[in-house]
């Protein structure tokens, strides 16, 4: 079992490195800059912004430094969008909320799911079985929008200790004249 886990972890590392490289290349190919706004930025200012974020260096160097900082320091660098925050800070803000939701969902799904399964197996082909399977399948197919509404109202009224207002970090819409 331990060897299996270690193997999976060993495969995960190069996979992540490949993913980082691929997304880095995709970002570079995409037109526009992370700093494009309503108003065109004069080229001198754009050069200053690029220098501040190290984007004036050769691209291979940017990629290597990015990966090295993650591997050696677990540092994902500055955020291009929230200019007074680092990516680590943004993760630190959202992670506890995601972790809480994830943990609760996992516990509820496992406990309720396994219990229902056991009950359904013991009382095979009875009303209890149909009921248990019905609920499980119903929960599977229920649209997330409606279940989300339920859990959201639940979390806002404070039941079950859910933190209110889960990270709504979203599309980063725009300012006035777009």
């Amino acid at each position: 079992m331990l060897i299996f886990i270690l193997k999976r972890l060993a495969i995960a590392i190069p996979t992540l490195l490949v993913l980082i490289t691929v997304s880095f290349v995709l970002m570079k190919i995409a037109p526009g800059t992370p700093f494009s706004g309503d108003k065109a930025i004069p080229k001198e200012i754009l050069a200053n912004i690029y220098a501040r974020y190290g984007l004036d260096k050769p691209e291979w160097q940017q990629l290597l430094e990015y990966i090295w900082n993650i591997v050696a320091h677990f540092d994902f660098g500055p955020s291009f969008k929230y200019k007074d925050r680092t990516v680590n800070e943004i993760i630190a803000q959202g992670f506890p909320v995601t972790f809480a939701y994830g943990t609760w969902s996992f516990l509820i799904a496992t406990i309720v799911g396994i219990s229902m399964g056991i009950i359904a197996a013991i009382r095979h082909n009875t009303l209890v079985d149909y009921f248990a399977v019905g609920i499980t399948v119903g929960a599977q197919v229920a649209p997330t929008s409606s279940s989300r509404r339920f859990w959201f109202s639940c979390s806002r009224s404070g039941c079950a200790g859910f933190p209110a207002a889960a990270g709504t970090v979203g599309t980063g819409a725009t300012s006035s004249c777009r």
């Binding site: 706004g37 969008k81 929230y82 200019k83 007074d84 709504t168 970090v169 979203g170 599309t171 980063g172 819409a173 725009t174 300012s175 006035s176």
Partner: peptide, 17 residues
């Protein structure tokens, strides 16, 4: 506001919000 409160620094602020 929209999700664009980016830097509470007077010299770095750029979005309206």
């Amino acid at each position: 506001v929209l999700d664009n409160i980016r830097a509470l620094d007077p010299q770095l602020a750029e979005d309206v919000d």
